[in-house]
Simulated assay, not measured.
Amino acid sequence: MSTYSKYFEKIRVRPDRQAEVKSHAPRCQWDGCDEPGTHRAPVGRMREGEYFRFCFDHVREYNKGFNYFSGVSDSEIARFQKEALTGHRPTWVMGANSGAKAASDFSHIRSGRAGYYNRVRDPYNMFGGGRAEPRQRQAKPLEAKALETLGLDTKATGADIKARYKELVKRHHPDANGGDRGSEDRFRDVLQAYRLLKQAGLC
């Protein structure tokens, strides 16, 4: 029985990536170490973006003793921590900078609440926008003419329209006026006007 098989030739061995990295890595910067420096360690304060290259054992030892704030007073550390809250960007007290007043004049325009009220009507003050009275609906020309036919103005409510319609129907209906044919046209106009207002949703 042979220990060689033709299938052994088809087996592909994945290359050792760690060995490849180690072969191209610079030498460890720890004194007296000849291992490859495969790991980075920060140089220190005010030298951000610069790194030492150490082997695995020495980078662990370096990181144990690393202190970003070494040689810095407690007050400076506290100031750094406070500035870190705003990403080390300048801030101002509310209203202290010269442009604050001008910016505050337009703050209601940029706010979400003002934008909401500019886009959405709130006629019954459900969202507390300060409008106590419902906004008057602008009547279209045909609706205004129909209201005029009923003898009403554009401020008339649905109840006003229904009451006026009932009154005019009783007055101009052929059965109610003793068969007077002269008011048939007026009766027809009242019916058409009421139908148009009903389709428009005003009553």
Rank of each mutant, 00 (worst) to 15 (best):
R181Y: 06
G151F: 05
P174M: 05
A163S: 13
K162D: 12
L196F: 07
R171I: 07
K155C: 14
K166T: 14
D180N: 05
R195W: 11
E184V: 11
L191M: 15
S183P: 07
D175W: 02
G179R: 00
Y165L: 09
G179C: 04
N177V: 01
A156D: 05
R195T: 14
Y165G: 06
R164A: 09
L191E: 13
S183A: 07
H173G: 10
E167Y: 04
R171V: 08
G178I: 03
R171D: 10
D153Y: 03
L168R: 00
F187A: 06
V190I: 15
E184K: 07
T149W: 00
I161F: 02
V169T: 13
R188V: 08
S183N: 07
T157A: 08
K162N: 09
R164W: 02
N177P: 01
D153A: 11
Y165E: 12
G178P: 00
Y165W: 07
K170N: 13
K166E: 15
L152E: 01
V190T: 10
F187G: 06
Y194E: 14
G179D: 02
L191P: 02
R181H: 04
H173N: 12
H172C: 12
D153I: 11
K166R: 13
G179W: 01
R171A: 11
T157Y: 03
K155Y: 14
G151T: 08
Q192A: 14
T157G: 08
E167M: 12
K155L: 15
Y194C: 14
Y194W: 15
F187Y: 14
G151W: 04
G158A: 11
P174T: 03
T149Q: 06
V169G: 03
F187V: 08
G178F: 01
R181M: 09
N177L: 00
A193I: 03
G179N: 01
T149R: 04
T149L: 07
G158H: 05
L152C: 04
